[in-house]
């Protein structure tokens, strides 16, 4: 394929979005609350609609704030419903985010009816990354070439930078409160506050990603890079790095695939880039899951063929004494499945 300036911008915007999502996404995966990303990305809709009603324009700051506030409220409401309604977290989430999402849909219908401005539901769900380079906010000459800076690149770049700064500044607090929230509280790290800070990051990132990838594909960007990285490393810092790389790879492969693959199957027009990104991320996860050198499917089969329970032999003279090596290794094999 020929890469035009717009293609480059689409990939840059997709990458910024994917990395901005992947960073908080890693913590969602580690805290086993990936579906909170799903809940928040849907529940911000009434916030968006309300922001739009107030300002009558899209992609404005009030819209942003409205959506972010509703995103955090989703986390709070889920907590409340779970606590006082005596239902588990999954059900609480299901109640809260569907209600808020439906409310958002009603409000959008009202907005469209009143203002004749089209807030397109399918755009909300899948985004319109192909059109983001058209919304230029600044253009300047750099050497020989004119560069037209799209708004989405600026917004997503800013959100990525904020996420990066917050995670770097509070790296050990995020790490501790994700691994052992009880210990975090006893040493004075506000674990509850960290939880809501993470939820705010997810909410803000989701809203910023709306135009690019929409509320469904954004879940893939939040969860899949982190989950893929989780299979490849035993260190949090490396996991964050790998997740960013997986995010960028998904954006590049996704756009390339969306443009080049349909003609091969006899279709003229390229397909959706955001869809391509999510599929690429899924394929990358699948490949890693099968081929990961430490936790992959093939590696597991290989180990079973060789009848060796663990790639790293447990060399601990202490613990053999009571149970004997056989039962110890048996226990290890059980756990490693």
């Amino acid at each position: 394929m020929t890469w035009y300036a717009d293609d480059v911008w689409i990939v840059i915007i997709g990458s910024l979005c994917a990395v901005a999502c992947a960073l908080p996404g890693c913590f969602l995966v580690l805290r086993k609350m990936s579906m909170m990303g799903d809940a928040i990305s849907h529940a911000v809709l009434p916030g968006l609609a309300l922001g739009f009603l107030v300002t009558q324009s899209r992609a404005s700051l009030p819209m942003f704030i409205g959506a972010a506030v509703v995103g955090v409220l989703t986390a709070v409401f889920t907590q409340w419903v779970g606590q006082f309604g005596k239902v588990d977290r999954g059900a609480a989430m299901g109640i809260v985010f569907t209600t808020l999402f439906a409310l958002g849909l009603l409000m959008m219908a009202e907005v469209n009816h009143k203002t004749k401005v089209d807030l397109d539901v399918s755009c909300v769900l899948y985004g319109a990354i192909e059109f983001t380079p058209l919304h230029v906010i600044h253009s300047f000459q750099w050497g020989e070439t004119w560069i037209e800076l799209p708004l989405a690149a600026v917004t997503l770049g800013a959100v990525l930078l904020i996420n990066l700064i917050v995670i770097l500044a509070l790296y050990k607090e995020f790490n501790l409160s994700s691994f052992d929230p009880a210990l975090a509280r006893t040493v004075g790290v506000p674990a509850t506050l960290m939880h809501y800070l993470l939820m705010s990051m997810v909410a803000v990132t989701t809203v910023a990603s709306f135009e690019a990838v929409g509320s469904i594909i954004v879940i893939a960007m939040l969860v899949v890079p982190g989950a893929t990285a989780y299979l490849l490393t035993n260190r949090l810092s490396v996991m964050l790095g790998i997740s960013a790389v997986v995010g960028i790879a998904s954006a590049v492969l996704g756009h390339w695939g969306a443009v080049t693959l349909p003609p091969k199957f006899g279709y003229e027009n390229p397909t959706s880039t955001s869809g391509g990104m999510a599929v690429a991320a899924g394929v990358l996860f699948l490949l890693v899951w099968v081929f990961s050198p430490t936790q992959g499917l093939l590696q597991g089969v290989w180990m079973r063929v060789r009848k060796e329970p663990n790639p790293i032999p447990v060399t601990d003279p202490d613990c053999e004494s009571s149970r004997g090596p056989t039962s110890h290794h048996a226990a290890k094999t059980l756990r490693s499945r």
């Binding site: 050990k172 691994f179 975090a184 790290v189 260190r235």
Partner: peptide
């Protein structure tokens, strides 16, 4: 806690000092 968390033994023990290190 989740023992599959990507962290080394040393880093878990270091967490004991986080209270002294401060925000």
């Amino acid at each position: 806690v989740d023992w599959d968390y990507p962290i080394s033994a040393l880093d878990v023990v270091t967490m004991g000092t986080y209270g002294r290190i401060g925000l």
